[in-house]
Design a protein around this nucleic acid. Structure first.
Ligand SMILES: NC(=O)c1ccc[n+]([C@@H]2O[C@H](COP(=O)([O-])OP(=O)(O)OC[C@H]3O[C@@H](n4cnc5c(N)ncnc54)[C@H](O)[C@@H]3O)[C@@H](O)[C@H]2O)c1
Ligand SMILES: NC(=O)c1ccc[n+]([C@@H]2O[C@H](COP(=O)([O-])OP(=O)(O)OC[C@H]3O[C@@H](n4cnc5c(N)ncnc54)[C@H](O)[C@@H]3O)[C@@H](O)[C@H]2O)c1
Lengths: 214, 214
DNA sequence: GTGACCATGTGAACGGGCGCACTAGCGTCT
DNA sequence: AGACGCTAGTGCGCCCGTTCACATGGTCAC
């Protein structure tokens, strides 16, 4: 199976979850088949792009008919590795880290938050939404033990690189960084970032340069 | 000024805030000039890319020397429209919306949260980090009055499109969507999204397809 | 003043992704 | 049975962005 998926373009990978969500909606609405056009509309992209993206997964459509919603949903889930849970650890039990832990949407989507870590001893031992806060010194040991697949960094920027290093040392293969700073990880470790200030500044740019005529 | 900036590639725009932050760090460290190479290292990109990106803003470097940190910082701030504040409104005073409002980093970076909105009358009238929660019915009227530039959507997915429509009707030119759903806005309105579940699923994909050899 | 040095700015080649437009193939209706 | 209609799958040209490599032009030492 990882033979066909020898290389799926990054841009396509980033769209798969959007299709997945659209498919889930269709299942909820008890719609059995869907055309690339309809799916494109739901995902906010071009229909040809949808077809090309889906063709990377295999030929799961039927010409003249469309795609079987449930079957495609299953194949895509499998491709995305969503047929099993990915335990998540959140580092930084502050404002943001707690909000994330309190959010049920992650567990529901197969990303259970199984541990939190913080450098502040006053926070160690507390529970956030039932999740125990451990000390950062224990990341390496505990992350391996708990089988952490994804580490979420919600510490101040100054600590982010250090935390990332610890997560990598613990064998965590994927890191999601919320701290507003550039961090680096070794090859073979996946890194993505969510940077709200950056998003706002991008919006600011376009708003500033918008044609006053409209 | 909007003559030279007739067209800055989107990819470049997305990197400018990263450079900006790097420059701010250099100012803190009292470093007066910086080379494209050093800046590239800090921003985690290629040096040639830095030079090309910066060249879109103008010829602010000095050959043989590098870039004057403070001058470049000023020019970039101006280009990004950060020389003045952009009032922000958050719609959805729940878990996430409150966390965002409680976060001081936005005001500090020139994006003061001046209003919150919620459909739940039990929440209307409350204050979150000093910000008053209004009813969503008042978005159109109040957003215009308060001069809202950017609207942040932190409601459930089912309400997101409706909220976006209200924001647009209120003349808000930029929307940042946290709800896990695709929303559309008219041409001329900027839209960006932050989707945590999507990020986790992308990480899941790469982790699933990682070569077991390492 | 002159020459060696150094980093910017940019032309050009390259690569990836996008979308058009065509072909392939399934289902259905006559 | 055959023709028609519909939609998946895809080859191809185009465009945007990245990167290399070099010429340009400024600084500094002497
Ligand atoms: N809160 C938001 O809405 C928001 C929005 C955008 C970005 N962010 C970013 O997210 C990060 C966290 O924000 P926050 O509001 O939760 O901050 P916070 O100060 O509330 O929480 C930070 C937590 O990290 C812990 N910490 C500090 N150093 C640590 C270390 N070395 N190892 C482990 N834990 C450590 C602190 O003890 C604290 O509990 C920051 O980088 C911030 O810029 C937050
Ligand atoms: N909390 C998180 O960490 C987190 C993480 C990722 C994504 N999200 C997404 O962010 C959104 C908000 O999450 P949350 O945890 O804050 O949910 P929440 O239920 O705590 O808050 C949602 C708020 O929106 C309000 N609301 C509902 N309908 C509305 C409408 N039509 N107009 C205005 N307000 C309305 C509700 O009254 C509530 O206050 C959701 O779409 C969620 O999927 C949240």
């Amino acid at each position: 199976m990882s033979d066909r998926a020898r290389h799926i373009p990054e841009a396509t990978v980033a769209r798969l979850p959007v299709y997945l969500r659209s498919l889930a909606e269709l299942v909820d609405d008890k719609i059995a088949t869907v055309s690339s056009e309809r799916l494109a509309e739901m995902a906010g992209v071009n229909a040809a792009k949808v077809r090309k993206d889906l063709s990377y997964l295999g030929s799961y459509g039927t010409r003249g008919v469309g795609y079987d919603v449930e079957y495609l949903l299953f194949q895509m889930s499998r491709e995305l590795g969503l047929t099993h849970d990915w335990p998540v650890a959140i580092v930084g039990a502050g404002n943001l880290g707690s909000a994330l832990a309190n959010y049920g949407g992650f567990t529901q989507r197969g990303f259970p938050v199984v541990a939190m870590f913080d450098a502040d001893r006053a926070k160690v031992g507390r529970r956030v939404h039932g999740v125990l806060v451990h000390h950062t010194d224990d990341i390496v040991e505990l992350a391996a033990e708990l089988g952490i697949g994804i580490g979420v960094i919600a510490t101040p920027a100054s600590a982010a690189q250090d935390v990332a290093d610890k997560l990598v040392a613990a064998g965590v293969g994927s890191v999601l960084n919320f701290a507003p700073t550039v961090i680096t990880v070794p090859e073979g470790v996946s890194l993505r970032k969510v940077d709200l200030a950056l998003e706002l500044q991008i919006l600011s740019f376009y708003q500033e340069h918008r044609e006053p005529a409209g």
